[in-house]
Computed example of a mutant assay.
Amino acid sequence: MKEIWAQWDDEVKRLFYCHYGDLPYLLDVKIDESLFRALVQYWNSAYSCFTFERVDLVPTIEEYTTLIRCTKIQVDRIYSKAANNLAFSKKLMNITGMSEQWVTARIKQKGDCRCIPWRHLRDLILAHPDMKKRVDVLALSIYGLVIFPKALGHIDEAVFDLFDRLSKETTPVPVILAETFRSLNACRRVGEGRFIGCAQLLLSWFHSHFLRVEKVSYHVFSKNYSPLKELAATPRRDDITEEN
């Protein structure tokens, strides 16, 4: 995804930012595994927050919305799955603009869920004649592989439902937070386990509490300021152990 993003010109990137915010910067966030494992140990499942001695800290809707920074999001329109919605294949057709035959041939079953392999979407991004569809499919891929990484190398059916509703300017932030809390609770309960949530966004949120914008104190109030961009570009030490 990073290679595809790097090949796009500024006009296409602006189109992406306009519709989906600062999601591409998540691709540049390096996962510090030692820090992440240590952070999980401070998750308080009883109160759904991080507890550092006497200090409680938890990601909020406002903080995650600021990090994603998407002007299309309406914070009072929260995503919820519709009782009667389109079939998976129909949603995939709407998002990709491809035929039913193309979609049906690429849907796979992974465990208890249906999904589509990333390699098919990658090929579609590289070859699709409609640039807006290329943008949509890359955004879908970031949601499926980075924000909700359930099936490795695949985009889960549930992500398509959420993504389909983003066109109606609903906010995905509460769902992202809910999955983050659920995953943290699961990791704490079993002691070890895979975190099925957006680790990049969680670590960015954690680092944001220590971020200092040098020289220009009012920088954070600028419309063009991207905290996620600055966090992704900030050098981090990678030689610190989990214990330290």
Rank of each mutant, 00 (worst) to 15 (best):
N244A: 14
L184F: 08
E192K: 14
V75L: 10
M93H: 09
R182G: 02
E62P: 01
I147C: 09
R106E: 04
A139F: 05
Y64G: 02
S141T: 10
I142Y: 13
R182P: 00
G97K: 03
F221P: 00
Y25G: 00
T104G: 12
K223E: 10
M131P: 01
G111D: 10
F88W: 03
H154I: 00
G197E: 04
R122E: 12
I125A: 01
A105M: 14
I4Q: 03
I176D: 02
A46W: 08
D123M: 12
S208N: 13
E230G: 00
C115H: 03
I125F: 00
S208Q: 05
A38R: 15
F221W: 09
C18L: 14
C18M: 11
L23Q: 06
D164T: 06
E242C: 06
V135L: 02
E11V: 07
I107L: 14
S34G: 10
L121I: 07
R182S: 13
C187R: 13
K72F: 10
E100H: 01
V29T: 09
F163I: 13
L184H: 12
L177N: 12
K108G: 01
Y25C: 01
K133I: 03
H120E: 13
R14I: 03
S34D: 15
L203F: 11
L166N: 06
L177S: 11
F50T: 04
T96E: 01
S45T: 11
L166Y: 05
L26R: 04
S208K: 08
A87W: 09
I142A: 03
R114W: 06
